Simulated scan of single mutants.
Amino acid sequence: MDVAEHATAQDDDEPAARAYTQGLQRRPGRSAQRCEACGDSIPEDRRHYEPGTEHCFDCTGALKHMNRRGFR
Rank of each mutant, 00 (worst) to 15 (best):
Y49V: 02
D13R: 15
A7S: 08
G70Y: 10
E54D: 08
S31Q: 03
P51L: 08
D58W: 02
T8A: 15
V3T: 10
S41R: 05
D13E: 14
H55S: 07
M1W: 11
E50Y: 14
E5D: 10
P28L: 08
T53D: 01
H6Q: 12
C59E: 00
L24E: 07
C59I: 08
S31W: 07
L63D: 06
L24Y: 05
L24N: 02
T53Y: 02
D12T: 05
E14I: 15
T60C: 01
A19G: 02
G52K: 03
F71N: 05
T21Y: 04
P15S: 00
A19I: 07
P15R: 02
A37P: 04
D2A: 05
A7D: 06
R30T: 14
A62P: 01
A7V: 14
C56T: 12
P43W: 02
A62E: 10
T53V: 15
P15E: 06
D58V: 14
E14A: 15
Y49E: 15
F57N: 03
R46A: 13
C38Y: 08
R34I: 06
G61A: 07
Y20E: 14
S31L: 08
K64R: 13
P15V: 06
H48A: 15
H6V: 14
H65G: 08
C38A: 02
F57D: 11
E5V: 03
Q10H: 01
T60E: 03
K64H: 12
A4L: 09
Q22V: 13
H6N: 04
A16Y: 12
G61L: 12
H55F: 10
G23Q: 02
T8F: 05
P51S: 11
Q22Y: 15
D40I: 00
T53P: 00
R47Q: 09
D2H: 05
